[in-house]
């Protein structure tokens, strides 16, 4: 694992190292099995097309889980993800490279916890924003 991140290391405006994923249909099936979401628009092309979609689409929640990984990778072992919100703004398709990005927007201490707030986004290979979100994490302090 990477080195532990501390509250004092973080500066508002910092960008989190982006996470790149290229989910395949196989990965969508793995996700379907892992969470029990068997709605066929995520694995059956004919079904998806019969529902007016161009093809199978990536589960919105998988996008949320990728954003979760972006954060847990960044905050390290002793950081905690307190809040993760995510709005799905566009469809994501398997085979497409997706980049997950985050930026520190705020840091504050409350009830002796050291909080950092970040804005999050998912972009497809065309650079279009397909999801946006906010994360609040608690980091250890050197103090």
């Amino acid at each position: 694992m990477t080195e532990q991140l501390y509250y004092e290391d973080v500066i508002v405006g910092d960008e989190i190292a982006p996470l790149v994923k290229q989910p395949t249909t196989r990965q969508l099936v793995m996700w379907a099995g892992a969470v029990g979401d068997y709605f066929p628009i995520h694995y059956d092309k004919d079904f998806a097309q019969s529902r007016g979609l161009p093809g199978v689409i990536v589960h919105g929640q998988l996008i949320g889980a990728f954003l979760g990984q972006l954060m847990t990778d960044w905050i390290g072992e002793r950081g905690s993800l307190r809040k993760l919100s995510c709005n799905y703004k566009g469809m994501n398709y398997p085979g497409e490279a997706l980049t997950f990005k985050g930026k520190v927007t705020k840091k504050y201490v409350e009830n002796e916890h050291h909080y950092v707030e970040c804005s999050l986004r998912a972009e497809n290979s065309k650079g279009e924003k397909t999801a946006s979100g906010v994360a609040i994490v608690i980091l250890p302090s050197r103090g």
Partner: peptide
């Protein structure tokens, strides 16, 4: 999802957003 679909068998279900507090 099973409960939801038995109450209202939608043709299509899409996720609009998720907010998680841990």
């Amino acid at each position: 999802v099973e409960d939801l679909m038995s109450l209202a068998p939608f043709n299509t279900v899409l996720m609009g957003g998720t907010e998680l507090e841990c």
